[in-house]
Design a protein around this nucleic acid. Structure first.
Lengths: 294, 294
DNA sequence: ACTACTGTTTCCATAATGAGAACAGTATAT
DNA sequence: ATATACTGTTCTCATTATGGAAACAGTAGT
């Protein structure tokens, strides 16, 4: 017996007053309705109906059960409508803005996994490092790295902590003066990231002013130049960690004090957050959580 | 798929966090749980769970559905508890007081049917015509015939209308003066019912005073004396109708105006009426309804 | 008395189901 | 690095439950 179906049939029978009419309405047979209601009564250990020829009437038990059965079915409808609404909400597009380097590294893997897990969501991803207004530009989601609280027009969900590392190739270091203190950087060719808030002042210890022959608005481009032995860079660890791990570059001034930043997922403060956005953000949190553990 | 069972398993799975543990708890197999949850997800068109090896987590949809699933199961419990409580309440004893004649005639057939339909209820029936206090004597149910409203300490459920008939045997009538008018009764031997409220004044037309050589507190005893041709009686129709139908007695003064009385089922006013009493009274109403139609 | 309708029960072919085994993947211990 | 132990999923197949058609019993209407 499908108990919910039996309850649905019982309610319908109470409304129509006829097994035959119920069978007609649900495109089934009288014997099926009769048996299913019989099974429900057996399961409950109670008679829900007086049947006479050409007449069906609820028993006292049946009347009380009917009232409660309607409540059960109402709750079931609520649950199913909830799922349906959510499924409808989950479909569609998410417009996402992400920093170039983060997008190409971590986020490209992350969103590959996300797309596999949520084939019904389309992503419209814009990689770029320029500071933009998410609301004005119509983005659902963006990312920010910050050690300060987030603008109150946005909700910032912290994803992970990260820091920067001073990187140079082994070849570069072999051919240039040793770097033991931050002030030693002044003697070196230090590449500058165009959008960096601190301009040419790297936040190492109390801060150190640097100069070099390359200013670029892309840390991955910069990373390639560093690998070539042309200079040093102040690089987020999610960009450089793989090159460090493989020995292509070396971190210098590892023990010097550098700021710890939080990577946030940002979305505009809204009365109603679309389910697909919630799903995406939950996924981001989970993904970075798992990455941290690895 | 038994959808309710699937929902129950889903809730249990959410609580335990493991298909294996659910299977153990419900004494079933992992494959059954896995398939049943899969069927529920198919039915809903949504994923309720993220599964990874050795780990189960609710999706966003799953969390919302879980909340609602708990409400469904709560309502189901309520419905089933209602039925169970009622079934328990239905078991037990009913102590019933009924007039002798009514008890021996209609009610003996009625309660025979009732006992067949409700084998779990025991009846403790006391037939008697003396006026007693139902509450004081511990009765659940009594009967009254009245044309006046019922005492406010009781609920009176009207069952049927009835009247009285003046009866005599054909033999008696052949050997005595004809009876055309109520006043003619003064010339005849009229039996008197001890408990009759009107004493020896029969409420026929404006009332007629009668006398006879028999006063008895039992109308069936009286009925036998009437059949023997010894006199006349003022008899409720449920006592005499069968004898009239078979020709053993004859109704005289059929067109004379007689009061119409209502037979009530009486039970004490209570905050909570036991389900078995409600069931019995419903049955009484139904039975007299059907008798009326015959 | 006959016909038309109701709901119930029987019979049987069909569909659904559950359990055990095999499989794939991951965590843990050695 | 490998073996073991655990998870959840899927496959296979015997078993069980089910639904529909037909027969049955009972009642209402003509």
């Amino acid at each position: 017996m499908d108990k919910l179906r039996a309850i649905q049939l019982f309610v319908r029978l109470a409304d129509l007053g006829s097994f035959t009419r119920v069978a007609e309405q649900v495109n089934s047979s009288k014997s099926m309705i009769s048996k299913e209601i019989g099974r429900l009564e057996t399961d409950l250990g109670a008679r829900l109906l007086h049947r006479s020829t050409r007449n069906v009437q609820l028993t006292h038990v049946g009347e009380g059960y009917l009232q409660r059965a309607r409540e059960i079915l109402s709750k079931l409808d609520d649950a199913e409508n909830f799922v349906q609404d959510l499924q409808q909400n989950l479909r569609g597009k998410l417009k996402i803005n992400a920093p170039m380097a983060l997008g190409i590294t971590d986020l490209s893997y992350l969103f590959a996994d996300f797309m596999q897990a949520n084939p019904e969501i389309e992503l419209d991803i814009h990689l770029g490092d320029e500071s933009i207004d998410l609301v004005e530009q119509g983005f659902d989601l963006g990312f920010r790295a910050s050690s300060k609280p987030i603008d109150s027009n946005y909700v910032g969900r912290p994803l992970t902590l990260f820091t920067y590392k001073v990187c140079a190739s082994p070849e570069y270091l072999a051919q240039h003066p040793a770097i033991s203190l931050p002030k030693d950087l002044r003697e070196h060719n230090c590449f500058v990231y165009s959008y960096f808030q601190g301009k040419n002042v790297w936040p190492i210890e109390d801060g150190v002013t640097v100069k070099g022959n390359l200013r670029v608005n892309n840390t991955m481009f910069m990373m390639e130049s560093i690998k070539q032995g042309l200079g040093l860079g102040f690089i987020p660890d999610f960009v450089c960690q793989q090159a460090i791990d493989s020995g292509q570059v070396v971190e210098v001034l590892a023990d010097a004090k550098k700021p710890m930043l939080t990577l946030y997922a940002l979305y505009p403060v809204r009365y109603h957050v679309p389910a697909k956005l919630v799903q995406c953000i939950d996924y981001l949190e989970q993904w970075f959580d798992n990455k941290k553990k690895a």
